[in-house]
Design a protein around this nucleic acid. Structure first.
Lengths: 144, 144
DNA sequence: GATTTACATGTGTATATACACAATGTAGTA
DNA sequence: TACTACATTGTGTATATACACATGTAAATC
């Protein structure tokens, strides 16, 4: 395998670039949220439960472009911490979920922290560039 | 917390979007590489060892925007599979690394698979858009 | 009514990521 | 020499991700 070939790979690989970007951004958010004992992944789940009121974990997973079983493991953690409550099984075993009072309070606490990191991110990469590209990231995640 | 606030969060969060995109892309690459028993993360490490000939795991981690300890765990796996060989400790405990013959052969086998998935990715999200945005992803990962 | 189809959930296993902390090696300096 | 500063590595722990497989539930079809 020659040098040009290797250049082709690590000069273009979409997966490497997407993962590197995600790792970096995750570290920045997690560092800021650490005093709350919260990780950005969990913050995202908290906010989407509150906002989407999903009727099943499967639907929530689809909405977040997550593998269902990945989401379930995170939900288990969040239940153990007392932030989330799962309802009884309903239609075809669907389970609704909702935030506990502690979950809601934590989300409120985390919001200004999130705002701060998000603002620093947008400033770092350029607000205009972010506005141009933010929807493209969702397209990468969801398009067929 | 009102609806507008939640919209603000999951309509803008850079971390959610970056992670969702990375998850999706990773699934696509991993699915294609599965017959080789290789994951895209490992493919990336294989190619960068071959291409960069790094003089230490710390330097390789920096070059890949990875946490060093994350890289080390992946290198352990790849050593166990016989794809990678670590050299003796050198200056300040630095360890060089190189691919074994098996590692090289696997990289050769994986290359056309990578090319295929990469082409499908570029077609899916638009080649022009990809060319415009690929460097921006590195900027997100590496800029201060 | 039995079978098929579609959707939902749960668990075992493997890998990826990263913080916290400890230990080792090298150079410069008091 | 002892101390300090810094670079490198290794390990314990926790969380994130996802495939493979098994199981439960309801509607549609035969």
């Amino acid at each position: 395998m020659d040098k040009e070939t290797l250049q082709e790979v690590y000069g273009n690989c979409a997966c490497y670039r997407a993962r590197a970007a995600a790792r970096r951004v995750t570290r920045d958010y997690d560092e800021a949220l650490k005093p709350l004992g919260l990780k950005i992944t969990q913050f995202t789940v908290l906010a989407s439960i509150k906002g989407l009121k999903p009727s099943s974990t499967s639907k929530l997973a689809k909405g977040l472009a997550m593998e269902r079983t990945s989401l379930v493991r995170t939900l288990e953690l969040m239940q153990n911490k007392g932030w989330v409550r799962l309802g009884p099984e309903g239609y075809r075993r669907e389970q609704q979920m909702e935030l506990t009072a502690e979950g809601e309070a934590l989300l409120e606490q985390a919001l200004p922290v999130w705002r701060d990191v998000q603002a620093r991110f947008e400033s770092r990469v350029g607000e205009a560039r972010w506005q141009e590209n933010k929807d493209w990231l969702l397209d990468v995640a969801f398009s067929d």
